[in-house]
Design a protein around this nucleic acid. Structure first.
Lengths: 294, 294
DNA sequence: ATATATTGCGCAATCGATTGTGCAAAAGTT
DNA sequence: AACTTTTGCACAATCGATTGCGCAATATAT
């Protein structure tokens, strides 16, 4: 408990046991060529001195740092902070650590984050690409260094991917709106070079087709992902003489913006306009269905 | 852009320039004893080969890894994910990285997280302690290794701390309730060995005293921090013959639980019971004041 | 009893970068 | 011109752990 002046190394243990550092190193790794007696002597002395391997020296030699890099657009989005938490919980049980970085939706920052992760010798990289990212060439750096890369949610290119079924989600959402009697459903989407927004758009379109509804280009607004954008988009949409009677938003935030504009302008939700958002942001739980509402 | 088979080292650069690695190392650090000519030759060759210092070798030698460790109870709490994001944004501009770990409110996990951070040679440690943490002795490990430690929000002991004024916040909240005419204000708190909950409790008590209201112990519920706990606490509180007319909760989640129970049981908010929560969780914005409500 | 296999461990190089010391050449001083 | 200072760089040790190779001692086989 008292302040150790200096960390104990395998050399310290070796000296005390009259063996060499290599033997200590091997003993700690359960190398078969080390005798049972020595191995246990080493281990118990290591335990006694509270030895712990110098991860830098070890990492320098082996190239492995037992660290997973995670790159997300922003850590403070509910979805991403959950994913980060999940990753951390899982890998920390395996003795790994988590290095995080956020891109703030900037491609350049994503590039430099990847470089930083490579320099940190992460053993694996998990990322969700920025809105600006248009291809996966920048991942090559990690791949060149033999670092396995997995993309999730917002994915691009052909690497390993973990995604949810945005297409089905969108399609179900729009079908549900149609079932409620909505006839004129607008869509607030995101950049379609990203799978998630493209899939949600496709789901929207196909659901409309399946319901024999026309697709109106003026009802499809891309890059409407924020509360402000949703608010503004509503304004233009409902000032036209061809206003929709429902909105399917690819983002809960733009759905919220739409909701606010409509309420402020006297529309009744959901009687006059139905709104559906995508993401299950926690705040949405309190917008519609909560028992103390009504 | 093509796949480099192996990273370039200072030795590679040294060889090509007919100098030694030490010269290259010093040149890259702008050491004054290196001639201008050599320095620039080194730097341009380094740039040409896209050299980047091996952080492990460097860290092994210097003991500095340009990494900040952050330990929080959970990454997916709005407050913590925001703090993590803020730290990451700030330090990444300085060329530092962020290693995260979560304790899940467990003291043991906190201890092992600190050890892991020390082993990772973080240059600084930022943490918010778990609910189980009762003193700061476990921080000694980091301090022994000369790692500066800063606690935030949930702090303990005498180290460096960044906190907000929980006492004033609580006091203001309760004073506000009194101003609204509330006479019988209950408190849902947390473990009082933690500054945040102790301060909020003190603020509550002192505000009541200042308003010449009696302090009723049966209205003070400790360890009521979650939605479920708030729900349950309400149940017991309002089944007594001495029910409060307001609740000041140290957590927005327990406030939410209270809100749900009261609504389900026919109480009118805020006419019959006022509820005030602490934390500014985003969802609370939608519970009371939003324009589309009422 | 001789030949082969196995066991147990030491030696020394290696992973890249850093840094104290030393030494020669160039520059400055009187 | 003789002497001190400064400049520019090389040498070699070091940070700890890992690992291929080698060599003895012991065990097994013939």
């Amino acid at each position: 408990m008292a302040g150790k002046k200096t960390r104990v190394t395998i050399h310290d243990i070796a000296r005390e046991l009259n063996v060499t550092a290599s033997t200590v190193s091997r003993a700690l790794q359960d190398h078969p060529r080390i005798g049972t007696g020595t191995r246990e002597a080493v281990k118990s002395l290591a335990a006694k001195y509270n030895y712990s391997r110098n991860t830098l020296a070890s990492g320098l030699r082996t190239g492995r740092m037992n660290t997973i890099g995670v790159i997300v657009p922003r850590t403070n989005r509910h979805f991403f902070s959950n994913v980060i938490g999940g990753i951390e919980s899982f890998v920390s049980e395996k003795g790994f650590q988590v290095l995080i970085s956020q891109t703030h939706e900037s491609y350049q920052k994503e590039v430099s984050s990847i470089k930083a992760m490579v320099d940190a010798y992460v053993d694996g990289l998990i990322l969700s690409v920025s809105l600006e990212t248009r291809d996966d060439t920048h991942l090559q750096l990690a791949i060149d260094h033999k670092i396995p890369v997995v993309m999730f949610d917002r994915v691009i290119g052909t690497g390993h991917q973990v995604v949810l079924d945005d297409y089905a989600g969108a399609s179900n959402a729009v079908t549900h709106l149609l079932g409620l009697g909505c006839e004129r459903i607008a869509h607030f989407g995101g950049p379609t070079h990203l799978n998630v927004y493209n899939d949600r758009l496709r789901g929207y379109i196909d659901a409309l087709k399946a319901g024999n509804k026309p697709i109106k280009l003026e009802w499809i607004k891309n890059d409407v992902l924020t509360e402000d954008a949703g608010y503004a988009a509503c304004e233009s949409l409902f000032h036209s003489d061809n206003a929709p009677d429902a909105i399917f938003a690819a983002s809960d935030y733009s759905a919220l913006g739409a909701l606010l504009w409509l309420k402020e302008n006297g529309y009744k939700i959901p009687e006059e306009v139905c709104i559906m958002g995508f993401s299950n942001e926690p705040f949405t739980a309190f917008l519609f269905h909560h028992p103390f509402q009504q």
